[in-house]
Nucleic acid binder design. Structure first.
Lengths: 217, 217
DNA sequence: GCGCCTAAAGTAAGTGCTTACTTACCGTAT
DNA sequence: ATACGGTAAGTAAGCACTTACTTTAGGCGC
């Protein structure tokens, strides 16, 4: 594996899988920056350090390349893994019915992920606007599950008498709204953080605080 | 004016201004649906019912057409007019320091506007992703003013002792987050309202309710 | 070890079509 | 009669994708 990386960076020639991966990464970067129709296969080839023909050896069409991104994103870097599956703090807080812990960790987890995978966020938004199926699938496979899961937690806490009787879905939307909108601001409109410069921890803390006071009994 | 409309719909030949406006509208529609690079001048010409040459008689380049949209959006249909300038209920509520009235009306106003000008919303997001200057300008001229204005109201109410000492900017971000994210869901991901089907009034009511309970003293 | 062979990595130079934009020319209302 | 709304038919560059060919890594007989 170390040898692979060594080869990768020093020699011009790579194995098929290495090159495929490299083209894929270049495509992710470019599609996320300029959108699908704003990116040319020539640019992708150039960014991958190969000729255009190589792009088409690895991916039948430009569309197929887009689809391959989707699949790779799902399998390798756990974009589709749910917060409660990989965040121990969150799971413990849920068991303990520590509402602040739940919403704080959930928020921090989301904000951190948005921050570290900015290009995926942009890709998602582009694909939503351009109406590729990436966004649709992500919504169906991931977002709706999040609504369900957090919604269930809220229902439970309502039965406990800890939260007011609001539609859980609306509460989830309100909270995700704070989080996603905040990330969107950071990624799209206020990259220099001129309007607001705040750590993810502070943001998560404040949002959780506002929400929980807003819905507690 | 009635004659203008009559001419417009029945005769092939229009005055220059009429045609210009028609091309502009077609471009708004197409750019908002497919983005700038996803739209061709041929498509715009077709949608306007003229030849491509006419598009270039009225607008020097495709880019100039994009800029013209920006300018027209600003001048004619009041996209840049502030809620508190055109919403009497909101203004009255602010004078009366009726917090729920303020945030409810603000929210309803925003959601209604997003709903009726969906294509402008899409245009804004496209331009933010594609990094055209439309989004940047809108952010500088409109969004930042909204933050300032609502932020000031919150500061005032904090001095009155009616609201907790949270950073007003974060509160604004939280609330705008709920509103914009909700509209975004309706426009981009859940057009059929399968996940949540709720009137703008109910949404504004719930969001205002959550926020105000979240920040009250 | 050594050379040979083959599969696969790689490319230069296309293909036909589409793109943004132009030119040179009409028809008609005033 | 001329100014203006309008078009048909371009142009050069760029697009997704292909073809026909070259280079190289590495397995295998010797």
């Amino acid at each position: 594996m170390i040898k692979d990386l060594f080869q990768c960076s020093t020699q011009g020639r790579m194995t098929g899988d290495e090159r495929r991966e490299q083209i894929l990464q270049a495509a992710v970067q470019l599609f996320s920056q300029r959108g699908f129709s704003g990116t040319t296969t020539k640019q992708i080839a150039l960014a991958s350090g190969v000729s255009e023909a190589m792009v088409f050896r690895h991916f039948e069409t430009k569309d197929a390349l887009y689809d391959a991104i989707l699949d790779s994103k799902r399998s390798d870097d756990g974009v589709h893994r749910f917060p409660w599956e990989e965040n121990e703090d969150l799971r413990l807080a849920m068991e303990a019915k520590d509402d602040f812990g739940v919403f704080y960790n959930l928020g921090l987890h989301a904000l951190t992920k948005h921050h570290t995978d900015e290009s995926f966020m942009r890709l998602l938004f582009f694909s939503a606007l351009e109406e590729h199926k990436l966004a649709e699938r992500f919504f169906g496979e991931f977002v709706s599950k999040v609504y369900e899961f957090i919604g269930n937690y809220i229902s439970e806490r309502q039965k406990d008498g800890a939260m007011r009787e609001l539609d859980p879905k609306i509460v989830v939307r309100a909270y995700l709204g704070m989080l996603i909108h905040h990330s969107l601001n950071n990624i799209l409109w206020d990259k220099q953080r001129r309007m607001m410069d705040i750590s993810n921890e502070d943001a998560a803390k404040n949002f959780a605080d506002i929400l929980l006071n807003g819905i507690k009994n």
